[in-house]
């Protein structure tokens, strides 16, 4: 890309962000497959709007189309912060439909699922470059955070100067290791939570208001 186009792009992005204050911020929930993104999106939506965003599942790539919940009003300390939350498909660099066969799926269904997953990830990557004002990055704190996808995505988010909140999810599980997540991304704040149990959601909402309000 040319230098000038780049500069123009950056400037228009910066000014977009400066002048779009009245619009609700679009907050993308990103992270690897199965981290608990939809579980979190549903909890936020249920807590503040009463209904859910989409289905959760232990089978990876349950979310294959980004789903948006608009106008979620979060109240903190007498102030209201309005955001649109976008639950995205788990980002990956590879999808092999054969993995889904292990989850008791017919080949046709597995192939369809993988095709939808790839389309959804492509779309989510595109949005991350064009259409998102902030990111909630969800990690499963029982797994190694030091993966290529995490490194690349955090790098992409940083390069666009988007505010990002890193959530170490699944703290209810005994194998959860919050410190490992914090160590992997020392340049950012890590908030522990269990999206499933609803543990520590108060701090999550405080931080959402602080970062995206």
């Amino acid at each position: 890309m040319g230098l000038l186009t780049n500069l123009k792009d950056s400037i228009s992005k910066v000014s977009d962000r400066l002048f779009a204050d009245e619009e609700p911020k679009r907050i993308g929930i990103y992270g690897p497959p199965n981290a608990g993104k939809t579980t979190l999106a549903n909890r936020i939506a249920r807590d503040w709007t009463g209904d859910a965003v989409g289905p959760e599942s232990h089978v990876p790539h349950e979310t294959r189309r980004a789903r948006r919940k608009e106008g979620v009003e979060i109240e903190r300390n007498g102030r209201t912060v309005t955001i649109d939350i976008v639950d995205t498909p788990g980002v990956t660099t590879k999808v092999d439909y054969k993995e889904f066969l292990d989850h008791d799926m017919e080949k046709d269904d597995a192939v369809r699922r993988s095709r939808e997953a790839t389309e959804g990830v492509a779309e989510a990557m595109h949005w991350l470059r064009e259409d998102v004002d902030g990111v909630i990055y969800v990690l499963d704190s029982t797994t190694d955070p030091f993966t290529q996808v995490n490194t690349m995505l955090i790098g992409i988010i940083e390069s666009q100067d988007l505010p990002v909140l890193i959530l170490a999810n699944k703290t209810d599980l005994p194998e959860s290791n919050i410190q490992r997540v914090a160590n992997a991304f020392p340049q950012h704040e890590t908030i522990p939570l269990s999206a499933l149990e609803g543990d520590n959601m108060d701090e999550v909402y405080d931080k959402i208001a602080e970062y995206f309000g």
Binding site: T93, Y97, T118, E119, A122, M125, R129, M152, E158, Q160
Partner: peptide, 27 residues
Amino acid sequence: PDEESKLIEVTMTEINPDEFSGIEIET
């Protein structure tokens, strides 16, 4: 980072059952 993001996006559009299941990348 921007190119990495596009690499992921284009990789996704080219994945094809039994033929191309994507990339492994390490940096």
